[in-house]
Amino acid sequence: MYTASDLRKGLKIELDGVPYEVVEFNFVKPGKGQAMYKCRIKNLITRTTQDRTFREVDKINKPDLEERIVHFSYEDGHHYVFTDPRTFEEFSLSPETLGDARYFLTEDCEVSLLRHNGQVIAVEFVKPFVEKEIVETEPGVRGDTATNVTKPAKIDSGYELRVPLFINQGDWVRIDTRTGEYVERVARR
């Protein structure tokens, strides 16, 4: 259990069984009133934020959260299997749990699994940028280096993203796994 005076930016708490992270907090105390902590908290499952004010005397649950760094091993058609390199424990995740992250997996890449009560609730790449080959896009417009005009393109996993006009099929690009967006063209691997 935490008390409200333990609250600080980055603290992870649990409300009604849901884990949250405190992203902003302020001490407030209206004239003649009690001390309170006005917080913005982020739901660690849905990633949405909300405002919540705690009284100084409020008790707040500590969530059972565990972070594991694992390596991607293989995909068996329905699930994606990861291995903890220290314990050799395997974690099998569904495409729904992984979300768009499943499109950016590369052999042996490291991801961090955030588990709440044993359930994986968030997957993040340890290195947030990945390099992928464009397997499908309209032919490039040579010399057009503008990056604000874009066209659709596909990578090998089938993920579709917007890339600048000068990108060709067979080019390699860097993608930010947190946003799923194109960052820049990189040298062919």
């Binding site: 407030v28 209206p30 009133g33 009690q34 309170m36 006005k38 405002d51 004010t53 009284r55």
Partner: peptide, 14 residues
């Protein structure tokens, strides 16, 4: 209601 008063004062009214 003291608690409700304080919470709503800083959360809704101010």
């Amino acid at each position: 209601d003291e608690d409700r008063f304080d919470l709503d004062l800083v959360g809704k009214v101010e």
